[in-house]
């Protein structure tokens, strides 16, 4: 199958026979053992599973942060596995937004500078950066916090800045690895609601991992992983 045949009709994310084996000295850790899945545009998908089930590894593959041992990841029909590190960095810059579990922000930069960082690298003008980010800061309720350094903000506020940064870069996909793991349940709920609303309002595709059932309930699609395999794939419109 050629890449050119893919284009618009291809699923946004397509994972095929994905395996990832870590070598830790003599020991082989098979973190992913043949994953197949598709994610369509606009989906709000949770990767659920116990710790060590391979969620982070899978997100790393989708986000071009790491290469699979075998199998491939296609985004919009384009094969993204096996790029050089520089190419991968460029691809991430243009296509993927990230929200990590913690330490999402560059400590020496203010909230605003963190948020505009990716846009600056994309070469977006100052006016445009304001046009994109001002409403987002407003939307997540951090308009007053733009000049704060990360250590002057709460964990939930930091995560929201990370969400602003991820969305501000106008990515195809936002990948979030356990974005609520370090937050209390109330803050988790509000962060998740925020993500869900942004997903509805803007049609941004979210894929996030979690092992928190409260969070899983809010997802519209839940892919369950265990020991590097997909054990369930449920669509639940009840959330």
């Amino acid at each position: 199958m050629s890449d050119s045949a893919a284009g618009e009709d291809a699923p946004l994310i397509e994972v095929r026979d994905l395996e990832r084996i870590y070598h830790q000295g003599e020991v082989e850790v098979r973190a992913l053992r043949g994953i197949n899945l598709k994610v369509e545009r606009g989906e709000f998908t949770a990767l659920a599973g116990p710790s060590g089930s391979g969620k982070t590894t899978l997100l790393n593959m989708i986000g071009c942060l790491d290469d699979p041992s075998s199998g491939e990841v296609r985004i919009e029909g384009e094969r993204v596995s096996g790029m050089s590190r520089t190419q991968a960095a460029e691809y991430r810059l243009g296509h993927i937004g990230f929200v990590f579990q913690a330490y999402n922000l560059i400590p020496v930069l203010t909230a605003w500078e963190n948020a505009e960082f990716v846009l600056l690298m994309q070469g977006v003008s100052r006016e445009e950066r304001h046009a994109i980010l001002d409403p987002l800061f407003e939307r997540v309720g951090l308009a007053e916090y733009k000049d704060r350094k990360p250590h002057e903000m709460s964990g939930g506020q930091q995560q929201r800045v990370a969400v602003v940064r991820a969305l501000g870069s106008r990515p195809r996909i936002v990948l979030a690895d356990e974005p609520t793991a370090n937050l209390d349940s109330a803050t988790s709920a509000s962060l998740l609601d925020l993500m869900l609303e942004l997903n509805r309002e803007r049609g941004v595709t979210f894929v996030f991992s979690t092992h928190d059932e409260m969070v899983i309930e809010r997802a519209r699609r839940v892919i369950r992983l265990d020991s590097g395999r997909v054990v369930a794939d449920e669509r639940d419109e009840g959330a």
Partner: peptide, 15 residues
């Protein structure tokens, strides 16, 4: 290390 990883994830190339 983590920060350089973050920068890299955000699309900052190794160079």
């Amino acid at each position: 290390v983590r920060e350089y990883g973050l920068l890299s994830a955000l699309g900052v190339g190794p160079g």
